[in-house]
Nucleic acid binder design. Sequence first.
DNA 1: CGTTTAGTTTGGTACCTTCCGAACCAACTG
DNA 2: CAGTTGGTTCGGAAGGTACCAAACTAAACG
Lengths: 174, 174
Amino acid sequence: MVPSEPTVILRLQIHFMVTANQQLIETLGVHLEGEYNLPPLAARIYAILILTDEDGLTFEDCLEKRGASKSSTSTSLNLLLNMGIITYFTKPGDRRRYFSIAKQKTFFLAKLQENLKRVEKEKAIITLVLDYHKKSSPKKFKEGQERTHIYLDYMNKNEALLTESIEKLKKILD
Amino acid sequence: MVPSEPTVILRLQIHFMVTANQQLIETLGVHLEGEYNLPPLAARIYAILILTDEDGLTFEDCLEKRGASKSSTSTSLNLLLNMGIITYFTKPGDRRRYFSIAKQKTFFLAKLQENLKRVEKEKAIITLVLDYHKKSSPKKFKEGQERTHIYLDYMNKNEALLTESIEKLKKILD
DNA sequence: CGTTTAGTTTGGTACCTTCCGAACCAACTG
DNA sequence: CAGTTGGTTCGGAAGGTACCAAACTAAACG
């Protein structure tokens, strides 16, 4: 039996939306894997939580939307909880937990703060190496000075930018 | 037999310098591992090449300084060569290759360019997610708009900073 | 030619990560 | 109480990474 035309179109549309969504979950998932050093499954679940319209997803929702095992879903959700990048809430008369991303407050703020830490760490390392070269081979040190200066200059400006943005963000969150 | 005092002091000093150097190699090594996604051994060899006073180290120098096997040393050096973060040169009448870090030119420039790529990639992803939310749940979208704006603003400024620094660096390298 | 030098390639081991199924537990429900 | 729901914990299995030792190769040396 051939379905009537409107049905076909509707099916195609739904299929398109579903696969487009899956695609986005995948894209975002890969990104998050790298960004937060998450295992594949945890990253996909995080992506699902970021993208959903619902106000919070249950354990089972997560499980079904990804098609993973109970144990892996449990492990992944707990990992995300421990990292503080998701939270859950409960509804009265409902034993289940509803998981959702920790308010974007935390999301972007954490990102900026993390970034700041990275910059500071790198500055520290560069200083360490520079000191070492200054002592052990002044010639080599002199050579690279100008380039190094540009790089350090960028790092400092970026650091200032970060501190400033963090302040701004904190202010609107009070 | 008890060594005379000066000998003891000398030994202690040498030991101190050696372990201090080893420590720095280790610290820098771990940093590079994370920064360039390098396997442990490759990262340590890279660190050794960054820190040495010599004008270039041979295969055997690398092998000895790290105490690794020939095969692993070979693999690691080739990996670093393929990634373009080290180079080698030869001396007339000497069959060996002398490895050294690719000029800091490439080092810092590559770092800035890599950073720029990361920022652009993240901006793209955020836009993607934002568009999705705008379409599927406008309420959710409105809520986070102010925070998102601050973050995107930071990203744009950082992007400008990076482009600028890259230009500066390119200029002094001509 | 045989020998030495400077590396490369191959095959295998050890470890680490990620996920799963199955058994388990703890709270509530009738 | 027994049964269901909402998870957690445990013991692998599969796959990937990083390293090593040993065999090999290719160029130079005498």
